[in-house]
């Protein structure tokens, strides 16, 4: 549990971050809360000769809510999300999900930016961001660009972010309708056995839009467009649920691990999604 030697940098601005990244290429990594990267370094599974701490950069710790969208800085912690009443008011699913991440000590340190940027399929926020159709702002030597969350994840720990880029903010359209983040885990601090994010809109008893994403059931988060579409135009009755679950099962690709074999994970994914939809619909 002792990391290899590394250089530690704490630049005061983003230009400083980017120049260190440019100099050292993939030998350098940025760190926000460090709760994914530091354990990997201690296990010597991540070799990071140049570690750039973002804490002093500034400008990435704000939560801004306007009429159409919510902008959350990359260094906003899970704890900040939980404690922000205005945010809980406009996007309660963020608080519901953040409360299911690890434990309070981790949530004081762990950030939204780190959670979504790391590309760990076990992380809760990437799937949620896909459900909410969020987009990620990254900045590099060539300036800023915006990548939709639904296009961001390519494989485990592989994302659309380039090595020289830093994820600085997450922008979420203000969610509409009912919500649910449903997660089964073995214990506090665990990744999901299966988790489902659901955001659903009810207009006179009919579902007019539904977004569904699943966590830790593939090597990336899984946005299941077909599952959401299966609910649209229905009264979210049992027949619609069955079609949605079947569609979702076609999109996920779980692997066996200590949480259980594939058959179990598929079954639980279906159960969790049904429950998430039911809870979201009851709030819609």
């Amino acid at each position: 549990m002792i990391p290899a030697a590394f250089e530690y940098y704490r630049p005061k601005d983003m230009a400083g971050v980017l120049s260190i990244l440019e100099e050292h290429g993939d030998d350098a990594r940025v760190m926000a809360g460090g709760h994914s990267l530091i354990p990997m370094m201690k296990l010597r599974m991540a070799d990071v000769p140049h570690l750039i701490d973002l804490q002093d950069v500034g400008g990435m710790s704000e939560i801004e809510i306007d009429a159409d969208a919510i902008k959350i800085g990359a260094l906003v912690t899970q704890s900040d999300i939980i404690d922000n009443a205005a945010l809980a008011d406009v996007a309660p699913i963020l608080r519901e999900a953040a409360l299911q991440i690890s434990d309070p000590q981790v949530r004081y340190m762990g950030t939204l930016g780190g959670n979504v940027a790391n590309g760990d399929p076990g992380n809760d926020m990437p799937g949620l961001m896909q459900c909410l159709d969020a987009s990620f702002t990254v900045v590099g030597q060539d300036g800023e660009r915006v990548i939709p969350a639904r296009d961001f994840y390519e494989a485990a720990y592989v994302t659309a972010r380039e090595d020289g880029e830093v994820l600085t903010a997450v922008t979420i359209p203000r969610p509409k309708g009912g919500h649910a983040y449903e997660k089964q885990k073995r214990k506090i601090g665990d990744y999901a056995t299966a988790a489902a994010s659901v955001q659903i809109v009810n207009d006179g008893g009919k579902c007019v839009s539904a977004a569904i994403a699943m966590t830790n059931l593939s090597d990336t988060p899984v946005f299941s467009k077909t599952a959401g579409d299966a609910l649209v135009g229905t009264s979210v009755d049992d027949a619609a649920l069955k079609i949605a679950v079947a569609a979702m099962l076609g999109d996920i690709d779980p692997t066996e691990d200590n949480r259980g074999p594939v058959a179990f994970k598929n079954h639980v994914a279906g159960v969790i999604l049904r429950r998430a939809i039911a809870r979201a619909w009851s709030r819609a």
């Binding site: 089964q184 056995t193 949480r259 259980g260 179990f264 639980v268």
Partner: peptide, 16 residues
């Protein structure tokens, strides 16, 4: 008796 083994018992007993 972790989650999946309990589930397996239910499954083998035909409860799903």
């Amino acid at each position: 008796h972790d989650h999946w083994r309990i589930w397996r018992t239910a499954n083998e007993l035909g409860l799903h």
